[in-house]
């Protein structure tokens, strides 16, 4: 059960109280993988890009969430498409996505 700790540590405090621990862990992880699955279409499977679009796997959480929030706010100079995409997610969803990719070993 070594996987529990890092994942449980990422959950919002209230979320985990509502359900059994195992159930909450699995549901949360699955949701994050569904959200993150769409990123792979441009950033590569597991966020490892084979081409000109940046890889996002294994980047520090703080870097990823700051970048996603800046895209959403329209504050990234020269941004092309990511402002339009990031604005489709809640802050909580962006945090889940950032955490998901930060936990992948590149």
């Amino acid at each position: 059960m070594g996987i529990m700790k890092p994942i449980a540590g990422t959950l919002a405090a209230g979320t985990i109280l509502a359900a059994s621990l195992a159930g909450a862990v699995q549901a949360q992880e699955t949701d994050a993988s569904v959200l993150a699955g769409t990123c792979a279409n441009c950033h590569g499977t597991d966020g490892v890009s084979p081409g000109s679009i940046p890889s996002i796997a294994g980047q520090p959480y703080a870097v990823l969430i700051a970048q996603l929030q800046a895209f959403k706010a329209g504050e990234v100079p020269g941004a092309t498409i990511m402002t339009r995409i990031a604005s489709g997610y809640t802050d909580e969803e962006l945090e889940a996505i950032a955490r998901y990719f930060s936990e992948i070993e590149q």
Binding site: C42, H43, I53, T80
Partner: peptide, 20 residues
């Protein structure tokens, strides 16, 4: 420059989705 980069990202997108 924006149009040029979107053409470049189109190629990057194709490379990524083909591999995905």
């Amino acid at each position: 420059d924006f149009r040029r980069r979107e053409a470049e990202y189109a190629v990057g997108w194709y490379d990524a989705i083909a591999r995905d």
